[in-house]
Computed example of a mutant assay.
Amino acid sequence: MKSRTFTFLLTALLIGTAAVTPLQASAQVNVNINIGAEPPPPRYERVPPPRKGYVWAPGYWNWNGHRHVWTSGHWERVRAGYVYQNANWYQDGRGWHLNKGHWKKDKHAKHHRDHRNDRHGHGKGYHCPPGQAKKGHC
């Protein structure tokens, strides 16, 4: 009887550890993409009408390990005190790098300002046209 109880407890402990371990490991993963191949020109995407409480994250060329694949634009729920940084590619001496879209703390956030429909001070529902952010126009 003691042997069966011990086996049961040991099995439960191993299963519990296995269930928690992947969560801890995935919380620390940071992916940088560095390749030699230039991404194709951005695709035209029709930007949907503004949606209260959300910002539009435009599509971008992602890298799947073998080639560029298009990732369509999507809505991101607004986060107070943060601004959404669109995905972008840049080149340096080591090749091409992808910065995936992410939220960044807004250093210039004013507590009374409504960020839900205001993208970088450009007005309600603003969306930077494809390729313009890379050129520094947005």
Rank of each mutant, 00 (worst) to 15 (best):
M1D: 09
S3P: 01
T5I: 13
T5Q: 13
F6Y: 12
F6W: 09
F6A: 14
T7P: 00
T7K: 14
F8W: 09
F8H: 08
L9F: 13
L10N: 14
T11A: 14
A12F: 10
A12L: 14
L13T: 10
I15Q: 00
G16T: 06
T17V: 13
A18K: 05
V20N: 06
V20C: 11
V20S: 10
T21G: 05
P22F: 07
P22A: 10
L23C: 06
L23R: 08
Q24C: 13
S26L: 14
A27E: 09
A27I: 05
V29R: 11
N30I: 15
N30F: 14
N30H: 14
V31Q: 05
N32W: 09
N32H: 12
N32T: 15
N32A: 13
I33G: 01
N34G: 00
N34S: 09
I35D: 03
E38L: 06
E38G: 10
P39C: 05
P39L: 07
P40D: 07
P40G: 10
P40F: 04
P41K: 12
P41I: 07
R43F: 02
E45V: 07
R46W: 06
R46K: 15
R46N: 12
V47G: 04
P48R: 11
P50Q: 03
P50F: 03
K52G: 07
G53N: 02
G53Q: 04
G53V: 08
Y54T: 03
Y54N: 08
Y54P: 02
V55T: 06
V55N: 01
V55L: 12
W56E: 05
A57M: 09
G59N: 06
Y60T: 06
Y60E: 05
Y60W: 15
N62Q: 07
N62I: 03
N64P: 03
R67D: 12
H68A: 03
V69K: 00
T71G: 02
T71Q: 09
G73I: 03
H74W: 08
W75C: 04
W75S: 03
R77Y: 03
R77S: 08
V78G: 00
G81F: 01
Y82L: 05
Y82I: 04
V83C: 08
V83S: 07
V83H: 14
Y84F: 15
Y84P: 01
Q85A: 11
Q85S: 11
Q85T: 11
N86I: 07
N88H: 09
Y90F: 14
Y90E: 04
Q91V: 07
Q91Y: 04
